[in-house]
Design a protein around this nucleic acid. Structure first.
Lengths: 354, 354
DNA sequence: CTGAAAGCGCTTACAG
DNA sequence: CTGAAAGCGCTTACAG
């Protein structure tokens, strides 16, 4: 359009042919020295290497992928990359993948099944070699289609209906149990719970663990003590406010993720209640800021590094080996209770103030 | 290897040829109905659409990209995707890109220039149409090479030496000034600062703003009141501990990012000091948890959404239009002081306790 | 209104 | 020890 100002046309990427020409060899030879895929004499190797260097040659990965069928790219779909838990697990996965020579396309579904579906299509169309999928609630149809298409696939974090693929899960039920039981051991009896979005298995399982702990301790499971959030910060605040406004408010709350727990702390403070003196809370996830909040958050730690490693291990198994007949793997990791300063033993008060 | 258990070979992806065959048209026509790139009769259009649907056809984006030279993919390099600030800006950028039909390859350089360099090469080799680069400190040589190769490029967040490319920055100096001035207005006189990694312009600029505020107020700039961190949580804790151990500890601290501020809060609590009664702190970034910390953090807000929009706007300008002659853009956004509960007016004490 | 064919930049049998 | 050539799956002039 404006040739006078046009960028230098030497952008026209340098190709393997240019390297071959400069080195005075065939593109076959260039390809082989790049990939180390057959013996090339010392002399030619040197000439090729020098030509590549001189021209600043970078292989076109699209062409390579198209021809070879190997893209050395993985796809990761997460519901919310600005949620610290997902950010941390994404980073852990990215790092392991990188060390194995793979790049990762991270897709943020923003908790939107439509977007999730679009991204899955994009990943497939981009010929990723494997997909790690933390679902935000895609329909069974879509998942079936995905599983059928044969791409190596591992689900993480969230249980999925109709699974043919491998899955790496946390024992969320046990986590909820651990958290609630901790509160019970501390002498609390009025224990509420802020759940995550209904329909997500981690959320449901955590609440199930909460219930089991109560039942085992012979405590009643009180419906108005279970309020639902959405795993986001704000809903923790709303949920806690709701609980505090109850006629008979709880003296301890199990909040099913740390983000909401931070919101809850804000609610507690806005009511001028003291934490943990007047109310104990335990979160879930152990994101890095759990240690930094005031008071530091008692929480259930997810073994993020271990999850990431397991996910990649399974994915590579499916990608590489003759794993065709291998039966579906279900890895269930154990969470751990991390006791900090947001919980404390209930001091029996002669009469409840407030 | 084990054909009996081998996955169904119908994985052999369905191609445009398969669609053409089934629809009884040429691949040219299929291509044109997919891309809406020339008129195709209603009849053929329907047949193609149906064939695509029936076969579950997905265009191979590698082939498309190779042929057309357009990959509809952008690359983003960030220093630490598990840092909430970068996670949030990544999400914002991802969303805008997605809405424009682009996918984003997010690369985590982990503050490692070597990895950063590798990733830049990967992005180029993958033929991304543009790169958004938040540097963790690459050498000038690499940046020069990058700029020369002609890929549309915009730097964000951090100033870069030898810039030919556009850049979107925050006025960090002004942010540091705002923060420190706020403390001064509150009556504080012993104001310390925890900086970020030296060598990073945001960090240096924030400290420069801190200095300017002190100087303008006629206060001394005291070297031992400036301690350096690395923008990570832990260094904020260490830094604050150091400051509190000073013979003459500060009564207010400007901490140059929120992550370190959270670390500092922990330090303050470990010394049994009360915040903000005994010490005021102001952070920088306004990540979402700043509101949720206890006390809620007074901080300097970065206009993340605006930054993301500006970055994409500039990048698309370079990618699409005849922007060849357009001069380098430098967009400097203004931060904002968000007053919360971690700062308060200094109560003049008859004599300093501790 | 539609199709045959060239070609994007690689890898990989095949041949010598 | 090395090269000529086919072909991956598309898009896009070119032709009719």
């Amino acid at each position: 359009m404006n040739p006078g100002f046009a960028r230098e046309p030497n952008n026209t990427a340098v190709t393997i042919q240019d390297v071959a020409d400069l080195a005075g060899v065939s593109i076959t030879t260039v390809s082989h020295v790049i990939n180390g895929t057959r013996f090339v004499s010392e002399d030619l190797t040197q000439r090729v290497l020098q030509a590549m260097d001189q021209l600043g040659y970078k292989p076109n990965l699209l062409a390579r992928g198209l021809r070879s069928g190997r893209t050395r790219t993985l796809g990761l779909v997460v519901p919310d990359m600005a949620n610290l838990f997902f950010a941390e697990i994404s980073r852990a996965i990215e790092e392991i993948a990188f060390n194995r020579g793979y790049s990762l396309i991270i897709c943020n579904s923003a908790d939107n099944p439509e977007k999730e579906k679009t991204y899955l299509g994009v990943l497939l169309a981009k010929q990723v070699e494997g997909i790690i999928f933390i679902s935000a609630g895609s329909s069974e149809d879509i998942l079936n289609e995905l599983e059928r298409c044969g791409v190596p696939l591992v689900y993480a974090d969230r249980e999925i209906p109709s699974q043919l693929a491998d899955v790496v899960l946390l024992d969320n039920e046990f986590g909820g149990y651990l958290a609630t039981n901790h509160l019970i051991q501390l002498g609390h009896r009025q224990i509420a719970c802020i759940s995550g979005p209904s329909g997500l298995t981690p959320s449901a399982d955590r609440v199930a663990g909460y219930r089991r702990a109560l039942v085992e301790a012979g405590l009643p499971v009180c419906p108005e003590y279970i309020v639902s959030g959405d795993f986001h910060y704000h809903s923790g605040e709303i949920g806690m406010l709701h609980l505090l406004d109850l006629e008979d408010p709880p003296d301890a709350v199990f909040i099913s993720n740390d983000m909401m727990a931070f919101g809850s702390i804000r609610a507690v403070r806005s009511r001028n209640l003291r934490l943990p003196e007047q109310i104990s809370i335990v979160g879930f996830d152990d994101i890095i800021l759990a240690q930094a909040s005031s008071p530091a958050l008692t929480t259930i730690a997810q073994p993020i590094q271990q999850m990431a490693e397991k996910v990649i291990e399974l994915l590579f198994m499916r990608m590489h080996s003759n794993s065709a007949g291998m039966e579906r793997q279900r890895v269930i990791l154990k969470p751990e209770l991390i006791i900090r300063d947001s919980t404390r033993a209930l001091i029996q008060q002669p009469e409840r103030t407030r």
